[in-house]
Amino acid sequence: MSHEPFQKKLGDLQQLHAIYLGGNQLLSTIPTSIFNSSVRQGITLESNNLSGSLPTNVCSRLPKLKLFYVDGNDLSGKIPSIWHQCKELVELQLGNNKFNGGDIPTDIGNLTKLEWLYLRSSNLQGIIPSEIGKLTNLQHLDLSNNNLQGIIPSDIGKLTNLQFLSLGNNNLQGQNFNYMTILDHVSIFVLF
């Protein structure tokens, strides 16, 4: 079902605090009109049939955004390096999409208020950037079911608020990673 007329009106709504449109079987790209609104709390578009790439103006248009959920769609392309502009983000969920490979953008390390980072099953490649260690408020990190390679960065051990860590089903090695540094505070740790 196409929702084009509805999506065009979203940008006209200037008093919105949040947009929750998850699980509505939306068939289109992510409506760019959302980024013309005054949303500050969150945008949740998870579990739809959205396709295309992530818009590159998410953070420049909505720099105070706290929640951004687009997991469980058919998004493709690469995850853009735009996150340095979203310094208020607390939860970022991009998992279960069909991204065309690509790395985890290193500017995710600038999201120092981030508590949830969900990139599970997103066809990501490359290494886990050491910048992840800058996310000192992070409580939940799920990078599982991707094509990540290389050594698990020791900087993950700096995440003392981390309660859930899932890195399973990747091609990672733990040579320099001291598991004991996180086992004191992580409740759930999935490596394989």
Score class of each variant (00 low, 15 high):
1 M>G: 04
4 E>D: 12
4 E>M: 12
6 F>N: 09
9 K>F: 13
10 L>S: 05
13 L>M: 14
13 L>S: 04
13 L>Y: 11
14 Q>D: 09
18 A>Q: 13
18 A>Y: 14
18 A>H: 12
18 A>S: 15
19 I>L: 15
20 Y>V: 14
22 G>N: 15
22 G>I: 11
23 G>C: 10
23 G>E: 11
24 N>Q: 15
26 L>M: 15
28 S>R: 13
29 T>H: 15
35 F>I: 11
38 S>R: 15
38 S>N: 15
39 V>W: 07
39 V>L: 07
42 G>W: 07
42 G>T: 08
45 L>W: 08
51 S>H: 12
51 S>A: 14
52 G>E: 10
54 L>M: 11
57 N>P: 06
59 C>W: 06
60 S>K: 08
61 R>K: 14
63 P>K: 09
66 K>P: 10
66 K>F: 11
74 D>W: 10
74 D>K: 13
76 S>L: 08
79 I>D: 01
80 P>C: 04
81 S>W: 04
83 W>A: 03
86 C>I: 09
94 L>C: 02
95 G>T: 05
101 G>F: 01
102 G>T: 05
104 I>G: 06
105 P>T: 10
109 G>P: 05
110 N>E: 10
111 L>Y: 01
112 T>N: 05
114 L>I: 01
115 E>H: 04
118 Y>K: 09
119 L>F: 07
119 L>C: 04
120 R>F: 07
121 S>E: 05
122 S>H: 01
123 N>D: 02
124 L>S: 03
126 G>V: 02
128 I>F: 03
129 P>T: 06
133 G>C: 04
136 T>H: 10
138 L>R: 00
138 L>F: 01
139 Q>H: 07
139 Q>G: 09
139 Q>E: 13
141 L>F: 01
142 D>M: 03
144 S>P: 05
146 N>R: 06
147 N>Q: 09
149 Q>K: 12
150 G>K: 02
150 G>L: 00
150 G>I: 01
151 I>E: 10
153 P>H: 00
153 P>E: 05
158 K>D: 06
159 L>D: 05
160 T>S: 10
160 T>K: 12
162 L>Y: 09
162 L>A: 06
163 Q>R: 12
163 Q>W: 00
165 L>E: 04
171 N>P: 04
171 N>R: 03
173 Q>L: 05
174 G>K: 02
174 G>M: 00
175 Q>R: 00
176 N>I: 06
176 N>M: 08
178 N>Q: 05
180 M>Q: 14
182 I>E: 02
182 I>N: 00
184 D>T: 11
185 H>D: 07
186 V>F: 07
190 V>I: 13
